[in-house]
Amino acid sequence: MQKEAENYCELCGSVIHGKGITVNYEGSTITICPACYSKIKSHAKIVENKKQNTVQSRQTKKTQTETIWEIVDDYPKIIKEARESHGMSTKELAQKLKVQENIVKRIETGKLKPTIQLAKDLERILSIKILVKIDESNDNNSNNINNYELTLGDIINIREGRK
């Protein structure tokens, strides 16, 4: 038996019990809880359920295969040692990476964390491993702050100065 994925209201962020209500609101198609719908129903138009099921199935497939790359904490030391062992200067490495020399220096001192693409290029050029694969689908039970998604309600609270 397949467990149904939890849906969250895209306006207030609360868990939606049941299917939720998909509406077109201010130019966006969102799925909201009945409480939020009662507040905005005069400004929102309900969207047919056929489109909602298609969107939900795509989101479920994406979540199951979603992989996140993370850069190891001691990346500055690994990069600097690898560059020196290859006999490269920071200028030569920067030319191979097609970035400014200042970027390489800041990465090696830990003042700048490389992007995932730049980290992949560094791994290829220096024959090192600084990226770690994190599989989100196996991490469903963690209460990590990184799994928090911003809702429209959060944005409204931020704009109005509430926390």
Rank of each mutant, 00 (worst) to 15 (best):
E160N: 13
V55A: 11
N24A: 08
K98E: 14
E66H: 09
N102G: 10
V23N: 05
W69T: 00
A94C: 05
N140R: 07
K105N: 08
E66W: 02
E48A: 13
V132T: 09
K62P: 00
C12H: 08
I21L: 15
K80N: 09
R159D: 10
I103H: 04
N140S: 12
Q2P: 04
L97N: 06
S127F: 08
I125T: 05
I155F: 11
D139I: 08
D135Q: 12
G27T: 06
N49T: 08
N143L: 13
I134S: 15
T109D: 10
A5V: 11
E123I: 00
D74T: 08
I78W: 05
D139P: 01
A94M: 06
Q64Y: 03
G27L: 04
V72K: 15
C36Y: 01
P76I: 04
I40P: 03
P114G: 06
K120D: 06
K45H: 02
N144D: 15
L97Q: 04
A119K: 09
G153V: 03
S89L: 01
K98R: 05
I128H: 07
K45R: 08
I128R: 02
E48G: 09
K111V: 03
E26H: 08
E4L: 10
R83I: 09
K3P: 05
Y75R: 12
D73F: 01
N144F: 00
Q100T: 11
A35T: 02
Y75N: 11
N157E: 13
K19Q: 12
I21A: 04
I32T: 07
V47I: 14
R162I: 03
I103V: 15
M88W: 12
K129I: 00
E108P: 09
N7G: 07
Y148L: 11
E84F: 01
Y8I: 13
Q64E: 14
P114I: 00
I30Q: 07
A35Q: 11
G153T: 01
V132K: 15
T67F: 11
C9G: 06
G161M: 05
K120C: 03
I40G: 06
N141S: 13
P34Q: 09
S42A: 13
K61V: 02
E81V: 07
E101F: 00
K3R: 10
G110F: 03
A35I: 00
N143G: 14
L122C: 06
D154M: 08
T90V: 05
A94I: 01
G13E: 07
L93F: 01
N138T: 13
D121K: 14
Q59Y: 01
T109F: 02
K3E: 14
V47E: 09
V104Q: 11
V72I: 13
V99A: 06
R58G: 03
N141R: 09
R83K: 08
K129W: 06
N138A: 14
E70P: 01
S28K: 12
Y25Q: 02
T60R: 14
I71G: 10
L118Y: 02
L112K: 14
T67Y: 07
L126P: 14
T151V: 06
D139F: 09
I125N: 04
I40C: 04
D135K: 13
D154Q: 07
C12Y: 06
N140T: 07
G13V: 04
I68G: 05
E70W: 01
N7T: 10
Y148S: 05
A119L: 07
P114W: 00
R124S: 14
Q95E: 14
